[in-house]
Write a protein that binds this DNA or RNA. Structure first.
Lengths: 344, 344
DNA sequence: TTGTAAGCGTTATCAA
DNA sequence: TTGATAACGCTTACAA
C-alpha cells in the first residue's frame, strides 16, 4: 500500500514522511493539541506537511467532529447592488470567528431556492442567513419548525418568530414623504415593491400612514404595485401611474431600481425630473450620486445589516434556545437632485 | 443504540424506518442504483426518507466517493459590478452539470486570497475559476504546478500556460481610440489600471499602439497608472493628469470605475464632460446609461465570460491532460454622451 | 509523549 | 434483489 502518488496527500502520507503515527501527526498539526507533542516531533510533522503540500480533508474532519464551521447565505439576486455589501458585512464577522460562508443565489426562483437550501443542508451548514424571505414562505416556515438555525436579513416572514435584521423601512419612507411635503408636494404617488415581501408591505403601509398623517392626498390611484424589485417593473408601474392621470407631482419608489425605472419613462416621454416629477428611491445603492439627476434616496447600512445578522447567527448557534429577536437598524434620507418643489 | 432523536437523520435512521439495510436504503435513494432494487422496497425507503426529512450527509458521501461536485470561484471584490454577472454565468453552466459553486471574495488581499484558496482546497473542490490573477502571481503558479485544475477569468498570469477566458481588451481599446480620433481628438490620455494585472497592461499597450498607428500624440505624460481599479484611484489619476497640463481633450479610462473617478474630478473642478473632456470607460457595468453624461464604454460579455470559463473548467476536469487554451471573447464599443468632438 | 483502535455516514464490493 | 462488510481521512478516548 504505497502512498498515493497522484491525488492529494493525506494525513497518513504526512505521518509516514515524518515517521510517526497518524494520531501523532494529527495532534502535531492541530494547534490545540500540539502541546501534547514533543517540540521536536511537532516540528518534523509540520515540516513534512509543508513539504507535501498537505491540506486536511475537511469532509473527513467534519464527519468526525460533526462540525463544519460553515454557514449558508441565501441571496435572491447577486446582481442587485444592494446585496454585495451585505455579503461583505456577513463575511467580515464570520471570518474572524473561524467560519466559512457559502453564498447561494436563488435568482428569485422558488424551485432553485429549495434546491440550493437543500444542498446547503446536506453540507451540514451550522446556520443560515436568508435574504429571500417572503411574507408567506412555507419553506422557511418549515425549516424553522425543523429547528434549523436561521437569521433573516432585510426581509421578514409574516409570522415574526424568526430572528431578523432589517433596516427601519417605516421611518425611512416617513422621512421621504416629509421631505416631499416640506417641498410643497401634496399629491404624492408610491410605486411599491411586491406586497408579498415584508419590505414591500411595510414601506407601502408607511407611505399610507405618512400621507394621512400629513393630510396629503390619499387616493388609491396614487399607489401602484410592482411585481418585482426591478427597473423594468418600475418603468411599467410608472407608465401605469401616468396613464391614471392622477396629477401627482412626486413619487416615492419602493427601491432604487424602481426609481431607475421611472428615469427610463421620463426619458421615453420627455419628462423632466425634478421639474415635472420629483422621485425618491430606497437603499442608496452605489453610483446614484452620478445619475442624471442624482437620486434622492434612503440610505440603508447594508454592510452593517450583514454584520449584525452574522453576529446574531453566531449567538443563535452558541445558544440554540435563545428567543428570537429582531434588530431594526436606523436609515437616513439622502437628499440629492431628484427632488425639488413642484412646478408652480 | 437508539436512532439519534435530536440531530439530523442519517441513512441508518431511514433504513431502520423502512426495515431494510443501510446499503439497500442507499441504493434506493440513488437514482443510478435504484433499478437494482424492487420497486416496492424503493418506494418504502423513499417514503421513509421523505417522512424523516432525510438529507444525505455530503461529507460522508464525498469522503467515500472522493468526488465533491464542487468548484471554487475566486473573486477579488464582489461589490465591483463587473463580477456578479460573471458569477451568474459560471453558475448557469455548472448547475446544469450538477456542480455546486463555492464563491470566495479576496478583497484584493493576498493573505486572504491564500487563506480562502487553502480553505477551498481542503474542501476538495474539483477545480478553481480564478478572477484575481496578477501578472506575477506565485500562488497561482504554484497551484498550477501542483496540478490544481484551474481556469482564469478576465485576467491572466504572465506565463500563459493556464487556460483563460478573457475579453478582447486590445480590440476594445483600439475601438475607443478610433472613435475619439474620428471625432477629431489628437491628444488623448490614458488612465490605466494597475500594470501588475494583465488587463491593465494589455489595455495600456493597446492604447500606445492605437495612438501610434493613428499618428496621434504619444507623450509619456499622457498616461497615468492607477494603483487599483477603483473610483478613488481614478480620481487621483485624473487630478495628476490635469496637473501635468498636457492639453489632452479626451481620456481612455482603464475601466468604468476609473472613468467614474474622472466624473468626480470634473464635478470638483467645474469641468464639463464631454465639452471640456471626452471620457471612455471599459466593461459597460450596469446603469452607465443613466449617468450624467451617459458613459461611452466598451461592453464586455461578462455573463458569457463566466459561462465559457465554467465550460472550460468542466472540460479540464473531464480531461486533465488537455492542453491549456485561451479564449478571447469579442467586445463592442457603446457610444453614449461622454464623448464628443473636442471644443474648437 | 506516543500508539492503538473505534467510529463519524456513506458507498462499493462481494456474497448470499 | 438484498445484506454483510470494508473503507474513505480524520479525531479522540484509552492504553502503553
Amino acid at each position: 500500500m504505497t502512498p498515493n502518488p497522484s491525488s492529494a496527500p493525506t494525513l497518513r502520507d504526512v505521518a509516514e514522511a515524518a515517521g510517526v503515527h497518524t494520531a501523532t501527526a494529527s495532534r502535531a498539526l492541530n494547534p490545540k493539541t500540539r502541546q501534547q507533542i514533543s517540540a521536536e516531533t511537532a516540528r518534523r510533522v509540520m515540516r513534512a506537511a509543508q513539504a507535501l503540500g498537505y491540506q486536511p480533508n475537511s469532509a473527513a474532519r467534519s464527519l468526525k467532529t460533526s462540525r463544519t464551521s460553515t454557514v449558508g447565505l441565501v441571496i435572491p439576486d447577486l446582481t442587485n447592488p444592494l446585496f454585495p455589501p451585505i455579503v461583505r458585512g456577513v463575511e467580515s464577522v464570520l471570518e474572524s470567528s473561524g467560519y466559512n460562508v457559502w453564498i447561494v443565489n436563488t435568482d428569485n426562483d422558488e424551485e432553485r431556492e429549495r434546491a440550493k437550501i437543500e444542498s446547503l443542508r446536506s453540507r451540514q451548514v451550522e446556520g443560515l442567513i436568508v435574504a429571500t424571505a417572503r411574507l408567506d414562505h412555507p419553506l422557511l416556515q418549515q425549516l424553522h419548525e425543523q429547528g434549523v438555525t436561521m437569521v433573516l436579513i432585510n426581509r421578514q416572514v409574516g409570522d415574526l418568530r424568526i430572528p431578523a435584521v432589517t433596516g427601519d423601512d417605516a421611518t425611512g419612507v416617513a422621512a421621504g414623504v416629509r421631505h416631499l411635503a416640506e417641498l410643497g408636494h401634496t399629491r404624492i404617488a408610491h410605486l411599491s415593491g411586491p406586497l408579498s415581501t415584508s419590505t414591500g408591505l411595510v414601506r407601502s403601509q408607511a407611505f399610507r400612514h405618512a400621507v394621512r398623517d400629513r393630510g396629503l392626498a390619499g387616493d388609491a390611484a396614487l399607489v401602484v404595485e410592482c411585481a418585482r424589485w426591478s427597473e423594468d417593473d418600475g418603468a411599467a408601474a410608472m407608465r401605469e401611474l401616468l396613464e391614471r392621470d392622477t396629477g401627482c407631482t412626486a413619487v416615492v419608489a419602493g427601491n432604487d431600481l424602481i426609481a431607475l425605472g421611472c428615469y427610463d419613462v421620463f426619458a421615453e416621454r420627455g419628462l423632466s425630473c425634478p421639474d415635472d416629477l420629483s422621485v425618491i428611491g430606497f437603499n442608496d445603492m452605489p453610483f446614484l450620486d452620478k445619475l442624471r439627476p442624482p437620486l434622492t434616496t434612503v440610505a440603508v447600512p447594508h454592510h452593517e445589516l450583514g454584520a449584525e445578522a452574522a453576529r446574531m447567527l453566531l449567538d443563535c448557534i452558541g445558544e440554540p434556545e435563545r428567543p428570537a429577536r429582531s434588530l431594526l437598524l436606523p436609515v437616513s434620507l439622502i437628499v440629492r437632485g431628484s427632488t425639488a418643489p413642484p412646478r408652480a
